[in-house]
Every structure is written in C-alpha cells, then in structure tokens.
Design a protein around this nucleic acid. Sequence first.
DNA 1: GGAAAAAACTGACTTGAAGCAATTATTTTT
DNA 2: AAAAATAATTGCTTCAAGTCAGTTTTTTCC
Lengths: 234, 234
Amino acid sequence: MNRTTETKGITQCSIFDFNLSWYELLTSEEKMLIDEHSVSINFKKGETVCKRGAFASHIYFLEEGLVKVYLEERNKNLILTLFTKNNLLGLSSVFEGNNKLPYSVSTYTDSRVRMIDIHIFRQLLQQNPEFSYRIINLLNEKTSQIYGRFFSLTQKQLHGRLADILLCLSNRIFKSKSFELPLSRADLGDLTGMSTESVIRMMKEFKDDGLIDMHCKSIELLDVARLERISEFG
Amino acid sequence: MNRTTETKGITQCSIFDFNLSWYELLTSEEKMLIDEHSVSINFKKGETVCKRGAFASHIYFLEEGLVKVYLEERNKNLILTLFTKNNLLGLSSVFEGNNKLPYSVSTYTDSRVRMIDIHIFRQLLQQNPEFSYRIINLLNEKTSQIYGRFFSLTQKQLHGRLADILLCLSNRIFKSKSFELPLSRADLGDLTGMSTESVIRMMKEFKDDGLIDMHCKSIELLDVARLERISEFG
DNA sequence: GGAAAAAACTGACTTGAAGCAATTATTTTT
DNA sequence: AAAAATAATTGCTTCAAGTCAGTTTTTTCC
C-alpha cells in the first residue's frame, strides 16, 4: 500500500502513569454507592496487596504509594507494570470470566488502597456508559503500554532494556532526572527480564560511560539524549 | 496473608480465539447504524490490512480468515497475537488518545474484514452500556492472554516457548492435533521471539524426540502431555 | 549500637541461542 | 516445464548473558 508517515519508536516509555479521572463521571448516587461499598486500607512498604489466583472480589484504587504488578512462577518473576497513586488496579477482573486475579500486587512504599466491591463496580459499568467508556480508554492505554514493554523485552538486548526502564522511571514515576529508587536491583531485573548481576554490571557500565550517576539507591540521569539513542537501537 | 489455592500455570495458551458475541447486544437501530457505516473488504493471503502509525479510522471485524497482529521496527518483528474469524480487531484505537494504530495487521489466508467507522463504534459504546460492558470483557480477556505470552517469551527458553506456541496453534487456532501451517518458520520465530534457524533446529529436535511429526507445512502433535510439561518447565 | 540478615557487587566460567554462509527444497512466475 | 525467487535446512562460529561462588556494603532489628 502507500507509505505512512513514520511514528515514534514502539517503546518510548511503558510504565503506567496517567490518570484520566473516572470518579467525576459518576452521578452523586453512584459516588455514594462506591463510598458505601469500599474501604481504604493502609499497606506498609513491601506488603502484598493481592496474589495471583485469589478470587477477585475488589477493584483497587491506589490512593497513595507505589506498587508493582507482577507474575511469579517457580523462581521466575516478571513485573508487568508499576502503578503510582491515583490509578485503578485489577480492572482485568471486571470480566466475570476472570474470577481469579491474573497477577499479584505488592507495595514498594507505604501505600493506601481503596478496595471497591467488584459487583458494584460492574453494576456501574453496566449502567453508566460514560464511565464505562472512560474505563475502556484506561484499559486501552494500559494495553498499548504493555505492548511497548513486550517489544522491548523480547527484541532488545540488555543495554536497550535498561535504558528503557531508566527513562521510564525518570519520566513517568519520579518525574525528575534524579531520584531515590525504592526498587532493588533484583526488581530492576524482574522489570527488564535480566538477572540481578546483569543489572548491576550494566548500570556500572552506564555509570562509567557517563550516562548516569549512581550511589546505591540514588540515581541521576546525566545524558538523556544518549540514553534515548541506546533505547532506540536496542 | 493466607495461602491461596494454586492456579494453573501462567501461560496455558495465549492466542486470541474466543468470541463473545457483541452484535446481538445492539438494538436494531444500532445494528442498522453499524451496517450503514461499515464495508466488508476482501484481502488476499499475505496482504496488509493496516499499518502501525496510520490514523485509526475503523474498527475491524474479521469475518473470515486468519491474520497476525504485529509490531515491526528496523528488522525486528514481534507478533502480538493471531486472530481467527469472528473477532474484533483494532479496539485499542477506540481510545481517542490513540488516534494512530498501535500495531500492524496482515493476513495469512484469504480473509474478509468488515471495516466499521470508528466514530459510530465510539458512539455506540457511549450510548449502550451492555455493549460497552461486553467490549470491556473482550479487552480484558485479550490483555490477560497477552500477559501469558509476555511471561512465556521473557521467562522461558526456546523449548518452552516453542511448546507453548505449538499447543496454542493446536488448541485455539486449528482445533486439531494435526494441521497445515500457513505461517512460515520466520513467522514462528516472530511469534516465539526466536530466530528462524532456532525454530527449525528446535522443531527438528521435537520431531526426533517423537513429540511432533512434521513434513514441511503439515504438523501433527504426537505427545501433548509431554509438550505441556515442556511448556510448564520452560 | 552491634549482630544478623539482606542487598549489592565482582570475577570466573558456562552455555543458550543468535548470526553467518552455504545448500537444498518449494513455490511462484513466465 | 524451466527459470527465478522464496523458504527451509544444516554446520560452524561467536558472543551475549546467565549461573555460581565468594566478598563487601547496606539495612534491619534486637
């Protein structure tokens, strides 16, 4: 067919951190319904919010904190995505076919999670088309981010994957070129699909090359342009 | 927390092939609206239905055929999923934020695709909650399948990945233990994240081990139980 | 504040899987 | 039906990246 204009690379950044508001789209009765059928729970750093395979009884709204959404099997771990505050988690289970949670969630920092009864949430989806439409948009946005990560982890080598994740953390999560990382090196490994040792080696290499500065948990991106090039060329 | 019952492995099968009906949920006026604002197009084997980056103007309903949904960049290819007939494609672009298509689609066999005006589709989503709810379920089902593939491709080695894909093709796509494969070895590579040569070597190995029988494009699974074990143990 | 545990790091070694180049088989085209 | 093009296959070589084992640093918790 005919030539299409070139678009940006597939993996610009892929960690979930946007938040279209959804609560505002509800009527006041509906809001009240949510309020009545939800509770807000505090989790300490490192705690498990929910485990894959458990029955899905709630939709989670992360009011405060930072969490990982991950899969584990045997000793293999894969972090699907990170969520920051004001995001909805566990939407996959609104589908009755998925009555079990398809992933686990645990916290990196102290967090507050509002747990919303899933039946109420479903009811609202079925009665309020605007709300439902917004949720579709949230799901789609998330899916296309997952595609980006999928591409990154399957098609790029270590340099590219690490550059990807560093850029994401900076742009999406911490919104700053320097940040204190609450994730361990092992977590970075689960996020990039590489071994802990490789993460360490690669980060040292980035440091030696003047791409980043780093003292243990504190990280600063020094040369974003070059990191982007590394991300692009895999 | 308390111990949850063990669930099945993450990657049972991950190719998209279920179809909840959605058309029936529309009112007769809505159906008419769809009919008026859609056309059915025939594609020959190997043709491109749409390319990543193009403006998303339609939702696609695959009336007949087999297609791949894929990402390409430089010489890297990744097949996200395969679709069989009676499935909706391109739902990611109902989100106005994504006015460009996030992936490309091309056919493996002669196919017929109904192209539905995206504005009409959006309108229906916003006015018909049951329809919208059904679409959410479709999206969710798809997402959890993508997670499975994501895990498979990032955490398993070649044996496991090939076993995964052979089982999927058999269970979901062809619904038979023996089938004529319309995909090339290179496509199997793009589907499993391995090189064409590795696909060939691995399939030969499976054949020598009595797991499958194979003559060029025709494949038969001989020992499904063992394939499942290989899939499970990566 | 000191002991214990957990992370972070380093170097040596091994290997899974990709890349390359050449050959054979299939399919398409004329 | 022959020629050309595409796909499948094989063997050889290379290297990216994981594993293992040991050391140092940092964090946690009595």
